[in-house]
Design a protein around this nucleic acid. Structure first.
Lengths: 219, 219
DNA sequence: GGCGGCCTTGACCATCCGGTCAAGTTCGTG
DNA sequence: CACGAACTTGACCGGATGGTCAAGGCCGCC
C-alpha cells in the first residue's frame, strides 16, 4: 500500500547526494552489491554518461525501481563506487608496507602495491581516471587523492630526514609517483598501449618502481 | 530554395566521422573557429557529454543549423579539436629543441616544452585527459600519443647509445615522463591541487624536468 | 496465519538530445 | 543588378534519459 517516504534527510552540512540509508536484509545487501558490481563494469566499459540507469537495471534483469530503492541517483552510485575503491586501495598499500622499517623500502613497496592494485582493478582505475575529468566528481576524488599523497609524503619525508634520499619537494614527488603509476598501468595493462608489448602486473610494478626511483638519468 | 546535399562522401578507408569539407569564405572560416573555440571551453568546463549542441549554438547566439553546416557531428568537432591540439603540442616541442645537439638537453627541453604547453593550454589538457577515458576517442588520442612517445624515445635512445644515461627501457621512460607531466600540471596549475601551493608555469616545468630526470632517489 | 516492513514491478512523466530540413538571407562575382 | 553559392534560421522528429510512483509480491517474526 503505502510507500516509505523517499527523501531521507541528509546529515546537515552534507551538501548534496546522500544514500537512502535503509535497513537492508541479507537479500537487500546482495542486490545492492550486485548493482554496484554490474554498474562498475558498465561505467568502466562504456563510460559514466553513456551508461543509463535503464542499461544497468536491464542488464541485471530487474525493474527500474530497484535502482532507486538502493541509490538516490546515478551520481550517488558512482560516488559510492569511488569512495569504496579509494578506501580499498589505501588499505592495500598500508598492508603492503606493514612490517617494513626502512623508509626507502616502505616507499618502494607502497609504489609497488599501488601499481599492483591498479593492475588488478583495471575497471576502478578507469573510473578514477574519468572522475578526475568530470566536474561533478573531481571533488570526491580529490579527497582520496589528498590522503593518498599525504601517505606517500610521510614516507618520503622520513627518508629525507634520515638522509637516505636527496632533499626535494616531497609533495611534488608523490604526485610524480602517482602520475607514473597511472600512465604505466594504463599503457601496459589496459587495452592497446601505444606501441608497447604486454607485460605481467609484476613486471609493470617493477618498472614503475624503477622509474619513480631513478628517473631517466639516475643511478 | 534547394540545399546542397548534406552527406559528403568520405575518402574511402576513413571509417567514420568526416568533416563536411565545404568551401569556406573568410566569414565561414571565422565562424568555424568561433565554434571550435567556444566548444573547447564548454567541453573543458562542463565535460563533453554534458555539453549539448544546443548549449554551444545558444552560447554563440546562432541557429542549430550553423553547427551542422561546419561539422557533421558533435564527435567530429571534438576529434578535430583533439587532432589540432596534438599537432600544436608536437610542433611546439619540436621547435623548442630545434638548435640543441646534446641528447640529454634535448630530452630536458622537450619535457619542459611539453609541460609549458600543458600549462598554457589547460582546456586542451583537460580534453586530452577526458578523451583517454572515453571509448569513442581513445583511438584518436592514441595516434597522437604514439607519435609523442616515439619522439621522446628517439632522444632517449640517442642518449643511451651515447652512454649519457643508463640503458633502461626507453618506451617505458617516455610514458613515465608523460605521466609525470600530466599529473603535475594538473595538480599545480588546474583548480585546487591536493594540498599544494600554486606555482608558476616555469616552476612547474622545472619540477617536472627534475623529477623525470632523477626520480625520488637519483643523484 | 497474518501483519508489517523490505523489495520489486513497469508504466509513466517532463525534459532534453543529436540531428534534419525547407526556407530565407548575405554576399562576392560577372 | 542578377545569379548562384555560402551561410543562417528555427521548427520539428524520433528516441532517449533520469527519475517517480501506485500497486503488488515476498518473507521473517510474532
Amino acid at each position: 500500500m503505502s510507500v516509505v517516504p523517499r527523501q531521507t534527510t541528509n546529515a546537515p552540512g552534507d551538501p548534496a547526494a546522500a544514500a537512502p540509508e535503509r535497513k537492508l536484509t541479507a537479500r537487500g545487501r546482495e542486490r545492492r552489491s550486485q548493482l554496484i558490481d554490474y554498474a562498475t563494469k558498465r561505467f568502466a566499459d562504456d563510460g559514466f554518461h553513456p551508461t543509463s540507469v535503464a542499461d544497468i537495471v536491464d542488464g541485471i534483469g530487474v525493474g527500474k525501481g530497484v535502482f532507486y530503492w538502493y541509490f538516490s541517483s546515478k551520481e550517488e552510485l558512482f560516488t559510492e563506487i569511488l569512495r569504496t575503491a579509494q578506501t580499498d586501495l589505501r588499505r592495500t598499500q598500508r598492508k603492503a608496507i606493514g612490517g617494513i622499517d626502512d623508509p626507502v623500502r616502505r616507499i618502494e613497496e607502497g609504489i609497488r602495491a599501488g601499481a599492483l592494485w591498479m593492475a588488478n582493478n583495471p575497471d576502478l582505475r578507469r573510473l578514477f581516471e574519468f572522475a578526475r575529468t568530470d566536474e561533478s566528481f573531481v571533488k570526491a576524488i580529490r579527497i582520496g587523492q589528498r590522503r593518498h599523497v599525504a601517505d606517500a609524503v610521510e614516507h618520503l619525508q622520513a627518508a629525507i630526514d634520515a638522509g637516505l634520499i636527496p632533499d626535494r619537494d616531497p609533495v611534488a614527488l608523490a604526485h610524480g609517483i602517482l602520475g607514473v603509476t597511472n600512465q604505466l598501468t594504463m599503457t601496459y595493462l589496459d587495452g592497446a598501449g601505444g606501441g608497447a608489448t604486454k607485460r605481467s602486473a609484476e613486471e609493470v610494478a617493477d618498472l614503475v618502481v624503477s622509474i619513480c626511483r631513478n628517473g631517466f638519468a639516475g643511478e
